[in-house]
Simulated scan of single mutants.
Amino acid sequence: MAQFVYIMASRPAGAIYIGRTGNLTARVAAHRAGLSAHTAKYNIRTLVWFEVHEDFATSLKRERAIKRWPRAWKNALIAERNPHWQDISGHIPF
């Protein structure tokens, strides 16, 4: 089953949330509904980056690595594929 590592943001270069899930569409909906305390507190509603992994272990390792990166690296990761930090939830594979 596909696993996703993703980043959501409040605005360009604003507050971010890094997570991992097996159902990205449902997880994004949960964040937007305010079901996560961190994303609700900082108004994080925009999916700005994600990548697909084939298994849980690989996705977990990648998520933990990205969380340890300096903020400038995270911003660069997003800007590389999404320079305007626009919502990309329409690009989630089904």
Rank of each mutant, 00 (worst) to 15 (best):
R64A: 07
A40C: 06
P12L: 09
F94V: 15
G90M: 06
I92E: 02
A72L: 04
R45P: 01
R62I: 14
G34M: 03
A33V: 11
T25I: 08
A30N: 06
R20W: 10
A26Y: 05
I16S: 06
N43H: 14
A30Y: 07
L35E: 10
M8L: 03
E51H: 12
Y6M: 01
A15H: 09
A2C: 14
H53I: 11
A13Y: 15
R20C: 12
Y42P: 03
A65T: 12
P70M: 03
L77Y: 04
W49I: 09
A72G: 05
T46Y: 12
H53T: 11
V52G: 08
T21S: 01
E63H: 04
A72H: 07
A76N: 01
H84T: 12
L47M: 03
M1W: 13
F4I: 00
I78L: 00
S10G: 10
R45C: 07
A2Y: 15
A30S: 09
Q3Y: 15
P12F: 14
V52Q: 06
W73P: 08
L77D: 01
Y42H: 11
S89Y: 03
Y42C: 03
A40W: 09
A40G: 05
A76V: 04
A37F: 13
R62T: 14
R68G: 10
Q3T: 15
S36M: 11
H31R: 00
S59M: 05
